[in-house]
Each structure stands twice: as C-alpha cells, then as structure tokens.
C-alpha cells in the first residue's frame, strides 16, 4: 500500500517535471515576445535574453494608437466582426453536412465526399486569382463576406471531414433506437449527435477561430480599406525596411493579438476534457 502510493507520487512528479521542461519550449516564444515589447530595436535583434537592458515603455500605448488614422480598438473589433460569424456558420453548416455524410446512404456519396477532401488538396496559390474574380463579380470585395458566406455553405472542408470522423465514432445503435422511438433525423442530430460530438465541435470552434484570427493572406487579398483591416493585417502594416520600424510596438500588439485565442482556448478546453466519457455510451 505504502509502496503503491510512493510509486504514484513518483509518477506524478515525473509527469510534472516532464510537462514543465517541454512547457518551457512551448511558452518561451510568448515570453520572449512580451519582453521584446519592452526592448529597443537593437536589443530585439541582438540578443535572445528575456530581460531588457533598457526598457521601452511606449510599446503598448503607442502601438495601440497605430500609425495615425485608426487605433487597434478598431482593428480588434473588425476582427471579431469577421471571425465570430465565420465560426458560427462554420460550426452549423459543417455539422449538418458531416451528419449527412456520416449517417445517410445516398447515391454518389463517395464521389461527393471525395470532392470534399479533394478540395483541400489544390494549393491555394493558383486559386487566389480566380476566387478573387468570383468575389469581385459578387461585389463582395472589401467586405467580410468572402469569409462569412462560404462558411455558411460549408466550404471549409477540413471541418466536414473532421466531424464526419467523430460522428462515425458514435455507435449507430443510438440513432436507431431513437428512430424507433419516433425521432426524426433532425432530432437525432440535435439530441444525440450534437451532445456526443461536443468535444469535436469545441475543437472546430477553436481551430476556426484561431485560423481566421491569424489569417493574413486572405485578409490581404480581400480587404483594401485600412478602416476594415483585421488585426492580422494591422500587425504587419508597419513593417517596412525602407522606413524605421518600431519593433517594440509590433511585438506589443502581437502579444495582445494572441490574447483572444488564448483565452478562448483556456475557457473552451474543459469541454473537450470533460467530454462524454461520463455519459456512458454503450446501450
């Protein structure tokens, strides 16, 4: 008994030490960014240490003010306006489509599903221009619609594929018994599939939020007006070697821009951790 407890404590201690060592590698860049937001340009590029020799206090205040016209308050609220609807629509549409693929038998399903996955395989570089033409002809340039509307139509195929995998790992017997009880397919989705795929849906929310939050290239292509810039564009707005860059401000804003995704992750994780293991699946 005593021995067993000793063994358990050792195991836990080793786990903590391991987690902490690897954890340092994971967290170091963020710490460095925070310290860089207080450093001079010289120090940012000449040493990797964390403690600034000469502290620059202006990074956050001046960085937030931006280069004149608009401040980061606007860029942050723009980003939320772009990201939140995109995430919401992605979750709804991807779940519906994934449910359709995972649970129903219909002609051409395999071909259509192959198309879903195939659409992930073509490199972005060569579809940028024709896609730009599509959104141009729809009159959506310089709006957030090129992000939001495609999300409503489940064109972020990654999530369909992902949710299909999770729905398929739910025993079919559950649906069938519900069907026998007279549930229609939508109620099965809502009452059985949805609760059981909650960890996966939380992952969809996290991924889509982080990816759209950081998405630079699409924002660059579709958004022209500075007053509509999301944070990802605003962060790079003042990086030009033929001018003097205030790196501490860029670093300060990079640190702040990480906060919403980090907070979201921190709050959301308990859902995919609690998961469904408590609901007692089989039956």
């Amino acid at each position: 008994m005593h021995m067993a407890r000793f063994k358990k404590t050792t195991k836990i201690t080793i786990s903590y030490i391991f987690l902490a060592i690897i954890g340092i590698l994971m967290v170091y860049p963020l710490l460095w960014m925070i310290s860089a937001s207080f450093k001079t340009n010289n120090e940012i590029f000449s040493s990797i240490g964390l403690l600034p020799k000469e502290i620059m206090w202006n990074g956050y205040a001046d960085g937030w003010r931006g280069s004149g016209q608009y401040s980061f308050s606007l860029y942050f609220s723009n980003t939320f306006m772009l990201v939140v609807p995109t995430v919401v629509f992605t979750v709804i549409s991807s779940l519906l489509v994934a449910y359709g693929f995972a649970r129903f038998r219909f002609r051409g399903k395999k071909v259509l599903f192959a198309l879903v996955i195939a659409s992930l395989m073509l490199p972005n570089e060569v579809v940028i221009i024709p896609r730009y033409m599509v959104f141009n002809s729809l009159g959506w340039l310089n709006t957030y619609l090129p992000f939001i509307i495609p999300a409503a139509f489940a064109t972020y195929s990654f999530f369909i594929f992902m949710l299909v995998q999770y729905v398929r790992s739910i025993p079919r017997e559950l649906d069938e018994s519900a069907r026998i009880d007279g549930c229609n397919s939508f109620r099965i989705l809502y009452e059985i599939i949805l609760p059981l795929t909650k960890p996966a849906i939380i992952s969809v929310i996290i991924f889509q939020f982080v990816w759209r939050w950081n998405d630079f290239l699409n924002a660059l292509i579709y958004i022209s007006s500075v007053r509509k810039y999301p944070v990802s564009l605003a962060l790079r707005m003042s990086l030009d070697v033929t001018d003097t860059i205030s790196w501490n401000q860029t670093m300060a804003m990079s640190v702040l821009s990480m906060l919403p995704p980090v907070l979201l992750f921190f709050m959301a994780q308990k859902y995919f951790v609690e998961g469904i293991s408590t609901t007692g699946l089989k039956g």
């Binding site: 004149g68 016209q69 707005m237 990086l239 030009d240 003097t244 205030s246």
Partner: peptide, 12 residues
C-alpha cells in the same frame, strides 16, 4: 507601402 513615419506623413 511603408511604416509609421511614412504612413503618418502621407496621411497628413
């Protein structure tokens, strides 16, 4: 294109 000094002067 540019950084803060150029942006600010141009906007002015």
């Amino acid at each position: 294109w540019g950084a803060d000094t150029r942006h600010q002067a141009t906007l002015e």
